[in-house]
Design a protein around this nucleic acid. Structure first.
Lengths: 203, 203
DNA sequence: GTCTATAAACCGATAGAC
DNA sequence: GTCTATCGGTTTATAGAC
């Protein structure tokens, strides 16, 4: 977007604005982000940004929509797993774990949003949770997973255990640095929580 | 704080400002909070707030200090548990669980802070983690907890499993409302995760 | 569609009277 | 210690030329 001056390419401009905005919103949140910073990073003037997206909130929503769209495109419809309870759960953990590596800006945007009071599910999320719930229930009915715990509990536990690792990473590094704990590598953490959860879920 | 006008009571004023500021910072974060809103809620004028706390950042730090002080006052020094590995862990879970109920503003402040890049541990936190680490290690050496997992993993898992419950509460309620999951009560969740984690940690 | 210029509001912070 | 008045800087958003 730096081709001389006023390079009338509305779609390219929009894309540049969205890219820059996503970066800034993920970094600073809605209140902390400014249009002038997005202007600087995108090369488009402030008024042009508002011309394309109405106002700051419109830009924010457009960024969110973009993230959801990209994410949904990558989601293949998964087959309901058959006869593989433990493997299904360890897969669930692994997928959640790498999600945080692959989608750092989406994660940050969701975190800001939650604090700002936005509890609405992101597009496509419902399908995944429906799939989780039915898969867990099936595994329970086959006797592969203990059935005295709710599917929601299992999902929350998996998500939380993974979430805390990436979300409190800097925080925990501080504790390691201060000698409260000895270091744990990412892969080791993944392996260990998988072992604990699988064992904890056996009937 | 509302006794007529200019009620020269510096300590009372400071307290009113801190109370209002804590509310606003917890609600909006540092960037989203404004001195004028804190002024409105506390009854003290903007300049008076800045007179007492230097600048916005100084006020923010004072709020954080106040929270930490109140929190630390309630922390009794705990004895290192003896011969009660599983009970120690279930206690750890219970304490973490009720912490989120008892300290909602502290939790929100910490969440905002983490997003804003503040990884510094809160005062007094180090002691707790030291205590966790040594307690877990002892339980492991006594063969009450499996010793192929790191203490940090266990702490993170407990914190994450609890954290996700309160942090994603509104979010999960949405999923329940949409029929993805059937409802789970707070107490049931606590009971179920305790059962899963305890079983998962047996040697 | 894109820019410059600018309005209108609000921000944190200061000056100075009391 | 507390207030009113106000400054200088930024913010979002608009007007209007091109």
């Amino acid at each position: 977007m730096r081709e001389g001056k006023a390079a009338r390419d509305p779609e390219g401009t929009k894309r540049a604005i969205l890219t820059a905005a996503e970066e800034v919103f993920a970094d600073k949140g809605f209140a902390g982000a400014t249009i002038s910073e997005i202007s600087r990073k995108s090369g488009a003037s402030g008024p042009l940004i508002l011309f394309h997206f109405q106002n700051k909130e419109g830009l924010y929503e457009a960024v969110k929509d973009g993230i959801v769209d990209r994410w949904r495109d990558r989601l293949q419809p998964k087959p309901v797993p058959v006869g593989a309870g433990p493997e299904f759960v360890s897969d669930m953990i692994k997928v959640a774990f790498s999600f945080y590596i692959d989608n750092p800006r989406m994660v940050r945007m969701a975190n800001w949003g939650r604090l700002e009071g936005d509890d609405a599910p992101w597009g496509g999320e419902e399908d995944i949770h429906h799939w989780y719930e039915s898969s867990i229930k099936e595994a329970q009915s086959r006797g592969e997973i203990r059935n005295d715990v709710s599917p929601l509990t299992i999902t929350a536990m998996v998500c939380g255990t993974v979430h805390v690792w990436w979300e409190f990473h800097g925080h925990m590094e501080e504790h390691v640095r201060q000698g409260s704990y000895s270091e744990v590598k990412d892969d080791d953490y993944l392996e260990q929580i998988t072992a604990i959860i699988l064992k904890g879920l056996t009937p």
